[in-house]
Write a protein that binds this DNA or RNA. Structure first.
Lengths: 331, 331
DNA sequence: CGGTTTTGCGGGAGCGCTCCCTGAAGTGTG
DNA sequence: CACACTTCAGGGAGCGCTCCCGCAAAACCG
């Protein structure tokens, strides 16, 4: 009825618990005939170690929390970032023999639970994903002493290594590209300003425009399609003569293109559009979207590896991955 | 240095371990003044229960594995299904105080690890997501005796309750809609036939067409955009005169629309397109996509609730959620 | 007011594992 | 051949918690 224990295996194999433990944990100091004896007993009984008992004594759990800031509204549901990042990180962790515990830090309640969870050492380490600047969770987690890494540089907080892509360089490249195409009234749709990616992309946009003596035309979105459409409508109202728009991510660029279509503007003839991220959907818009490729999967994998390094006692410095302009037909 | 234990709290509060345990677990049989005393000690010491010790004796882990079949190729990365389903299920589980352990069952190795993981009772229950028919994992998991539920009816296997949407009804509705619009040569792009959703949608398509004496024109995709585009190209080659296509999901419909555009066909003038799922992107295609809304988030939440019910000892029957045709401008 | 039940707390065994320590063989050396 | 040294297996404490049992005091009853 009850699952076999170490002791049962030991009895069956005619050896001690210690020996079975050694075999199960792959220690080399066991004679090979005894090892075989034990392995046979393990297979016959279908023995699987009890992880709770193990981690009670080792103080390791071999699992890692991936904490994703989740909007309380269920609206922004089919977020390509989530899928790409979580999958890439999971693969990396699983390859290292770590379990992934996924936590959504949407509400204050969820954040509290996450804090407690980590404090209870239910996990050995934490990877934070897309944290907003105002979020108190990173700092709270840092006090638990658990190794921490952030996917994306956290805004307003410098307590853990992070991996980000070159938001400033990528955005600058995008805007310069529009200038080279002869566009003169270039607007931008920014992401939420409590996120560092949005801050960086916006300030790079401003920088490049002010270098060339042009003025900024800015609307703020929240990285969702719908917000991109709304921001675009606002921009057209503010400056009907604009001839280009740089959206801080592809989702908003897609929304912007719909808004432009509805307003009777042709892309790229009347208004050029450039996005950021190069999600798969950017290939399927009409026209296909010019965008800045940010290696989100790579970034997530790098974050995961950084964290695994920390766990091995290595120390870790922030990493910035390069981006690349992908020119398609929307500009 | 070391984290405070139950015993430390007990000493501090001047009570026994048992009493502290009772307070921490919210048992009502403790006098309120003693409860306050204990709570104060808990807060002063920053005590957090050790989950490993707890689950060693209770034989519960309060965590649930969500196992998602993951293609080994990292190509199909920004899958809206993944994001929606994982988020919705997570929210449901977290609300019930359960932790979510995410596992990707992409490779045989990963499947083996998942099996071992569940056999070790690292989790109390398992939710399977988008399992393919050929996958041996569900049956393997069933032998562990862990409560199991499947998001989507598994093909070729009847071992656990599941929640699905009305694939047959939805697909039939879509095809009838195309007929009502006067379309006469209606093709379909099916999903991979080892998944029940693909099977059901295809057979409903065939059913409706044969009822009206028309022939089927079928191409097979794998639920990705690119496969939709390829399948569409194939269909145009097979039957250049087709005037409508029903894609078994929106992602493939989006790919199909691109292929149609490239082939110089107008949507819906030359070819009407209907998708399935109603992902958010369906609103942003040009023209906006007619599709069958399947409540993926609801379905995931329902699966989660079903599993939580099993865990409480309730028994569970399969659930089928209704779908609804959403008519936009692509048909 | 004596006896019985109820209430509330403490004692302590035991969950299944790891890892330190001990000791018995086996190996090498002068 | 005596001795030190290495190799490899067993014994057993202890990780932090829950939960059963027991007991004292309070509450209830006729």
């Amino acid at each position: 009825m009850r699952r076999p224990t170490l002791e049962a295996v030991a009895t069956r194999a005619g050896v001690s618990k210690s020996t079975v433990s050694r075999v199960v944990n792959g220690e080399p100091t066991v004679a090979s005939d005894i090892r075989d004896l034990v392995m046979r007993a393990v297979n016959e009984l279908g023995y699987v170690p009890n992880p709770a008992a193990r981690s009670l004594v080792t103080r390791r759990t071999d699992s890692i929390a991936v904490i994703v800031s989740d909007p309380p509204t269920g609206l922004v549901s089919d977020d390509p970032m989530f899928s790409t990042v979580v999958r890439a990180a999971s693969r990396e962790f699983e390859a290292a023999g770590k379990q992934v515990v996924l936590m959504l830090a949407g509400s204050d309640d969820a954040r509290l639970r996450a804090r407690q969870f980590v404090a209870a050492r239910h996990v050995d380490a934490v990877m934070l994903v897309s944290m907003h600047g105002a979020d108190p969770l990173p700092a709270a987690l840092a006090t638990t002493g658990v190794p921490l890494v952030s996917h994306g540089r956290p805004a307003f907080w410098e307590g853990a290594p992070w991996v980000d892509n070159d938001n400033v360089g990528g955005a600058a490249q995008a805007v310069r590209h529009l200038l080279e195409r002869g566009r003169r009234r270039i607007a931008t749709i920014s992401g939420p300003l409590d996120m560092s990616a949005a801050q960086d992309r916006l300030s790079a946009y401003r920088e490049v425009l002010s270098e060339t003596g042009r003025r900024s035309i800015v609307a703020i979105g929240d990285f969702t399609r719908i917000s991109g459409a709304e921001a675009m409508a606002q921009l057209l109202e503010d400056d009907p003569a604009l001839d280009a728009v740089f959206a801080a991510n592809d989702l908003m660029a897609i929304g912007a293109m719909r808004a432009l279509r509805r307003a009777g503007r042709r892309v790229p003839d009347d208004v050029a559009v450039v996005g950021f991220d190069d999600i798969e959907a950017a290939l399927y818009t009409d026209p296909p979207l010019t965008t800045v490729r940010s290696p989100m999967g790579e970034q997530a994998a790098a974050s995961a590896r950084l964290l695994l390094g920390l766990l091995r006692g290595e120390d870790a410095a922030p990493v910035i991955l390069p981006t690349q302009l992908v020119i398609r037909e929307s500009s």
